[in-house]
């Protein structure tokens, strides 16, 4: 598969996080723009690790919602330090505004995108996305009337509509059945190809599904005798030939990789 690795989009510099004990230790990684000819190939990166290892904390640091004890996260071509609002987040429990309908939840995303567009255009864009992601019939409902999977889709589209290039997802597969997981995978792949710069960062303990849609994966784990989790391994799924392949879960070698990783997290 022909592709080139280009400019740096996001860099985590020596991030440490301590509460009463060390949670994250010297976390470093980079995400680069991947370019494939004749298409808008965005980036999908997963951060996998055991429950309680510090994934959600790292997630919040990447979004600029909490400051690490030391170190920093820089984004975009100019590599400035991340500020809240520059990175979209889909939290573990898909939080939405419960006092607004699905339509208005999406509209609020567009309203804050900074684009100047008319009501009519807003309506068209929302309808287009709603059609594409099977939400058309739910637009008038309130979030409390939706299933977990539907809420998740609204949440993802809301963040896409704000125009954020970076979208972080915390455990996007948890609580969904197999069929729904495949749907989310499709949705995420779809989002990742809307724009060349779109970058999805998936934080998950579900190795198989996370790896299946990623081009790169990082393992966040504790090392013998040291307090605090750090990146212990980087897996380049593009070089392994596992990336951008919808049927990859059926591949025996891919399954071998997944099985091997289960022991290393």
């Amino acid at each position: 598969m022909s592709h080139t690795i280009q400019e740096l989009l996001l860099k985590v510099h020596q991030v440490n996080l301590r509460y009463d004990k060390q949670i994250l230790r010297d976390v470093n990684f980079e995400i680069h723009n991947i370019v494939r000819p004749d298409m808008n190939q965005g980036q999908v990166v997963s951060l996998v690790g055991r429950s309680g290892v510090g994934k959600t904390q790292l997630f919040k640091i990447l979004a600029g919602l909490i400051k690490p004890s030391t170190g920093k996260v820089t984004i975009d071509i100019d590599q400035h330090e991340v500020k809240p609002g520059e990175v979209g987040i889909i939290p573990q429990n898909y939080i939405l505004f419960n006092h607004r309908t699905v339509y208005h939840n999406l509209k609020i995303g567009l309203d804050f995108s900074g684009k100047k567009i008319s009501e009519k255009e807003e309506q068209d864009i929302i309808n287009e996305y709603a059609d594409k992601f099977h939400l058309r019939e739910h637009l008038k409902k309130y979030p409390m009337m939706l299933s977990g999977g539907q809420r998740q889709r609204v949440s993802i589209i809301q963040q896409v509509l704000t125009g954020n290039k970076f979208i972080l997802l915390d455990e996007p597969f948890s609580g969904l059945d197999m069929l729904m997981i495949d749907r989310v995978v499709d949705l995420l792949l779809n989002v990742s190809t809307i724009n060349d710069f779109n970058t999805l960062i998936i934080v998950s303990h579900d190795i198989e599904n996370a790896l299946a849609i990623s081009d790169t994966a990082f393992i966040l784990a504790n090392q013998e005798g040291q307090e605090g989790a750090t990146i212990t391994e980087k897996i380049d799924l593009v070089s392994l030939g596992f990336a951008w392949n919808p049927g990859i879960k059926q591949n025996a070698q891919f399954q071998e990789l997944v099985a091997g990783m289960k022991h290393r997290i």
């Binding site: 809240p84 987040i89 939290p91 429990n93 939080i95 995303g109 804050f112 963040q159």
Partner: peptide, 10 residues
């Protein structure tokens, strides 16, 4: 998290 959502919506 509701405040966080607002932050991410800028």
């Amino acid at each position: 998290q509701e405040y966080d959502l607002c932050k991410t919506l800028r």
